[in-house]
Amino acid sequence: MSISIEHVKTFLEKELPGISLKKVRESLLLQNPADLPSAARALKDSSVFKLDFLSSITGADYLDYLEAVYHFYSMQNKTGAVTLRVRVKRGSPNIPTLVPVYRGAEFQEREAYDMYGIVFEGHPDLRRIFMWDGFEGFPLRKDYEQEDSETLEIADVQWLEKRSVQIPAEMKQKAEELHRDGKRAIARQPTDKNTP
């Protein structure tokens, strides 16, 4: 059984006056990210919906903004999905955390932070989950540039020479050039997605 999104919209507007919602393609967009925990708690505590199961939190990158999509289900009523969305700008990607409301949000918010850089305020332990600590950059963003694994940078050259490894002259020169221009060794992006 599925829940109609209009029903959820009218309920939330009645429960939390002042909330601004927009219907996007069978889901609700919360225009102000700060409304998210109170909206989730209202849906969880309401006797009509009883949405006590947070199925998944997904981050997404839409070039102008970053988005987090939440799918809620009800285990007691066994009803269908309610989808909420929150959009934030790249410069200040802050969304309040849902961990006080749903424990299951813990690892999924860490994954969204690791892959997209969305910072969840109030998360008990927001650190990277898949990439190693100290990794720079957010891999699944559309503008992520991958390091070229075959070009050495000046830091690599220094590390290797300290351990007395011989480095060919061209590689060392290239590393120094990059350092002089202040650039990183970025992998070549293929222009056509289907060529090797």
């Binding site: 199925s55 998944s56 997904t58 997404a60 799918h71 299951g104 813990e106 999924q108 997605k193």
Partner: peptide, 27 residues
Amino acid sequence: GYYIVSDGTAQPWRYHVRAPSLINLTI
């Protein structure tokens, strides 16, 4: 769970897997 967003081209715009093993490790 699988979450796919399509932008009309032959490649998906966003593809996400909701892995049960990862979430069962929460507690």
